[in-house]
Every structure is written in structure tokens, then in C-alpha cells.
């Protein structure tokens, strides 16, 4: 600002000067890009997936092969070559990875969070937290390779009948991968529990064990629960580890039967990768089935994210 006309400078309205307008619009466009991204994902998945189903394809002006939406949602056979698109075969495999990884990650993650927030010294925390971050930072394809080459042979000692590709090893690595997510979000929730509550517990003569399990965990329950959902949604969307380790043959397995974890199957994400590494050409039925699976996957993860957000808002104890 030149000092000559200080008077005019001081009273100048800069709110809508070209420079302010230009920079403000740039920043706004950057923020709006995220909305555009979401709209593109939703729009793309819906339009492409609707070209897949017999019911909706005429609306999109697509002639040619289509698949029945009822068969897609209720069928249990996924065979591209014989044009059988039963997504439940894929969903069951995804569900198995989710359940298997949850069995590992949820208890371990919460235990880790309790240890870090209640027991660990500041120095131990400063070492353990970055070490846990590494678990989440290792590329997922590397985890898949670990499961295939090191974990499956180790499991073979215990379960001789285990397949080369199996859900158990995939679930184990996915579980290890999502431990940090459960641990860090739960720990944030536990650290947010005010110290007065703990002190009150100690004042009543409670031990550290009583305070941790009886006061801190119940008070942080909404955060813990939302960390579970977020971590499981990550496990559902996890792609490369299951593609490498879980198998290539779609099969409908009962997720609640422990024996089926020794077999291989094809989760949704792995099926998408498999569809593209095979030679499918753009526009075919197999190509469009990709977007139908994508839509199912997106809807499931979106619902879980929304639930997690709702739980952490709605049931948060306000202090």
C-alpha cells in the first residue's frame, strides 16, 4: 500500500477485488471437486449398473444381453462364461473375510487402545503408535503375498486340508491390517473420557483394571463402536490382499461354518480385479457386471460409514 493515499487505502473495500474473487473462487472450486467426485461415482455406478439389468436396460437404451436383477441379488452361482451372475457367491466370500478379520482385529484393537490410553507410559506410546501405523502403511498387495507364501504354509501344519488359496490366511492379514484403525479411533475416544471420571473411580477404591473396564470402556463405547464399523467397512473394500490370497474361483460358502474358511472363494473386490485382468472388452455384459458389483460394494461401505458417523454423533457421551 502506498502511503501517499493512506486515506483511500484505509477505506478501500477489498472483499470483492479481482484478486480476492479469483483466489476465493479457486479455493471454492477445489472444495466443490469433492462433491463432483461423489456425484460422478454415484452417477457412473448407477448408469452403468442399470445397463446390466434386464429391468432397467431399456430405460438406458441398451439392447443386447442383460441379466435379471432378481437372479443377481439372490443367485449363488457366479460363472461369467455360463452367464450366471449370482452376487451372493461373492458377497458370502466378502462376508467371510469381514467376519474373520473382525474376530482378529476387534478384540486386539480394543485391547491395544486400552493399553495405549490407560497403561502405556508416554515413552512406550511414542514407540508403539508409529509401529502400529506401519501395520496400516504396508501396501495391501504385500500383505496378500505374505498370506499366500508365509501364512498359508504355516497354517498347513495345523490344518492339513487347507487349500493354497483360503479365506483364513486372507482374513488374518486383513485383520492385522485394520488393527491400527480400530486402535487409533478407539484410543481417541478413550482419551476423550475426562479424567474426573477416572479419579472418581479411584476415589471409590477401584483398581486400575476396574477403572479401565468399568469406567473408560463404557464411557467410550460409541467411539469404539464407530471404530468397529469403519474398520469393517475397510475390510469389505480391501482388494489386493484378498485377490492374491483368497482365491480365484467363486464359490458360495457358509460364513458361519468354520470349516469353510479353509477353502478359497472370490470376494467382490477380487472378482472386480479378476474381471479386468481377464480380457473383457468394453461394453460387454461382463464389463457391465463390474459396475453392478461396484454399486453393491459402494452402497454397503457407504451405509456402514453413515452408520458409524451416526453412532459416534448420536451416542456420544457429552462431557
Amino acid at each position: 500500500m502506498s502511503t501517499d493515499d493512506l486515506e483511500t487505502d484505509l477505506t478501500r473495500n477489498t472483499e470483492n477485488s479481482p484478486r480476492e474473487l479469483l483466489t476465493r473462487s479457486f479455493f471454492f472450486l477445489c472444495a466443490a471437486l469433492s462433491v463432483v467426485t461423489t456425484l460422478s461415482i454415484v452417477g457412473l455406478l448407477i448408469t452403468e449398473a442399470s445397463k446390466f439389468f434386464t429391468l432397467t436396460a431399456p430405460l438406458m437404451g441398451v439392447a443386447g444381453e442383460t441379466a435379471s436383477i432378481v437372479d443377481f441379488l439372490t443367485g449363488t452361482t457366479w460363472q461369467i462364461h455360463s452367464q450366471e451372475f449370482g452376487v451372493l457367491a461373492l458377497v458370502s466370500a466378502t462376508l467371510m473375510v469381514t467376519i474373520g478379520s473382525a474376530v482378529i482385529a476387534l478384540p486386539l484393537g480394543v485391547a491395544t487402545a486400552i493399553y495405549l490410553s490407560e497403561y502405556a507410559s508416554a515413552q512406550a506410546r511414542s514407540i508403539l503408535k508409529p509401529a502400529l501405523e506401519i501395520l496400516a502403511g504396508v501396501p495391501t498387495v504385500v500383505y496378500g503375498f505374505f498370506a499366500l507364501i508365509y501364512i498359508t504354509p504355516a497354517l498347513e501344519v495345523v490344518f492339513p486340508g487347507i487349500g493354497t488359496f483360503n479365506m483364513l490366511s486372507a482374513s488374518i492379514v486383513v485383520g492385522i491390517m485394520i488393527i491400527p484403525m480400530v486402535a487409533s479411533i478407539s484410543e481417541d475416544a478413550m482419551s476423550a473420557v475426562p479424567d474426573e471420571l477416572r479419579q472418581a473411580g479411584y476415589g471409590m477404591g477401584a483398581t486400575k483394571f476396574d477403572v479401565s473396564t468399568g469406567i473408560v470402556v463404557p464411557a467410550a463405547l460409541s467411539g469404539i463402536f464407530s471404530s468397529f464399523i469403519l474398520a469393517l467397512s475397510r475390510a469389505i473394500g480391501e482388494t489386493m490382499a484378498v485377490t492374491v490370497a483368497a482365491g480365484a474361483q467363486a464359490k458360495f460358502l457358509n460364513p458361519l461354518n468354520p470349516a469353510s474358511y479353509l477353502e478359497g472363494a472370490l470376494p467382490m473386490t477380487a472378482a472386480m480385479v479378476q474381471l479386468l485382468t481377464g480380457d473383457i472388452t468394453g461394453g460387454g455384459l461382463a464389463y457391465r457386471s463390474l459396475f453392478a458389483i461396484g454399486l453393491v460394494l459402494f452402497v454397503i461401505t457407504l451405509i456402514m460409514n453413515v452408520i458409524s458417523d451416526y453412532v459416534s454423533r448420536r451416542y456420544r457421551e457429552a462431557y
Binding site: 466443490a32 469433492s34 461415482i41 457412473l44 473394500g237 482388494t239 480385479v273 461396484g294 461401505t301 457407504l302
Partner: peptide
Amino acid sequence: IDVNISNLAGVPSVVYGLL
């Protein structure tokens, strides 16, 4: 926008590939 960004962070990477 705020809610949208946190939801986008949870979208599986394979869906971004489809995008």
C-alpha cells in the same frame, strides 16, 4: 462438503478405479 469428504475417505480404492 464436510460429510461428503469424510465419506469419500471411506470409499474402497477399487471403486475409485471404476471411477
